[in-house]
Amino acid sequence: MSFTAKHLLGIETLPPAAITALLDRADHYVDLSRSDNKHGDALAGLTQINMFFENSTRTQASFELAGKRLGADVMNMAMQASSIKKGETLIDTAVTLNAMHPDLIVVRHPQSGAVDLLAQKVNCAILNAGDGKHEHPTQALLDALTIRRNKGRLHRLNIAICGDIAHSRVARSNIMLLGKMENRVRLVGPPTLMPSGVAELGVEVYDDMAQGLEGCDVVMMLRLQRERMDGGFIPSEREYFHRYGLDADKLSHAAPDAIVMHPGPMNRGVEIDGAIADDPRVSVIQEQVEMGVAVRMAAMDLLAQNLRAARAAQGAA
């Protein structure tokens, strides 16, 4: 097995072989999830805590289901309503939880780097479920799995990531993952939503959808993150939809067999035309959700294996 990390904090530090190992394992869990008996026992006896410092319905449900399918005891903590409000620091929260002997902690936090900080203070496996504008590794992995299953490969593809790159951790994780797997990645969006220095990450940058989508095999749309914006990045949503929203006309520039992806939740009529999102011939958006559960099962399975191995080694020593 070539996924040997203690935590899954981001794609940045994962070697390509680890990505492949995770995706191979996830394929197995897609089959399990489609069967009548969805239960595995990879996490039996382990405790999984979902700590979400930021609202999430989809990701949290996906992690919860993944843990339960593998037999973990899953606890959800809505951190916005908890002791954080009473002034407890992130580190104190982590240390307190750590004393309860969890085995896997899934964390989402509005601050970039907060999950890394937490990982330094606990002795269980940490999964990053999204930290600020930094990384969202399981989303990139589920996107990769979706692409691999639809295109039959995860290399030498033309992939366009479109829209609000600046505020997107999904974009950062995807840029890194798709780059590591040797794809040609293009970023398309208005220059105000393009983070500085992004061209140095080995991508091509476009501010025009027709040019950016030309011949693309995969079109990934991003949600316009209105809640993260602290000023006027675009003149209006209707102008944004006109210039950057994915509709049939813009999609016609992509390869004839292109697939359309979106990490959800969607703003219909802002970044994507509802008709495209619902068109089963091009849209794989629902499949992404399914892959999400499988990828999270795989990630927690492999992390738990590493955790058990580390504990056994510690016990032997």
Binding site: E12, S112, G113, G132, H134, R172, P195, D230
Partner: peptide, 20 residues
Amino acid sequence: AGAAVTSGKFATLKGLPGVS
């Protein structure tokens, strides 16, 4: 306002707000 690092590749990689 709000910047934690200098804008550029590093700021973008780490998802931190940058200042030009």
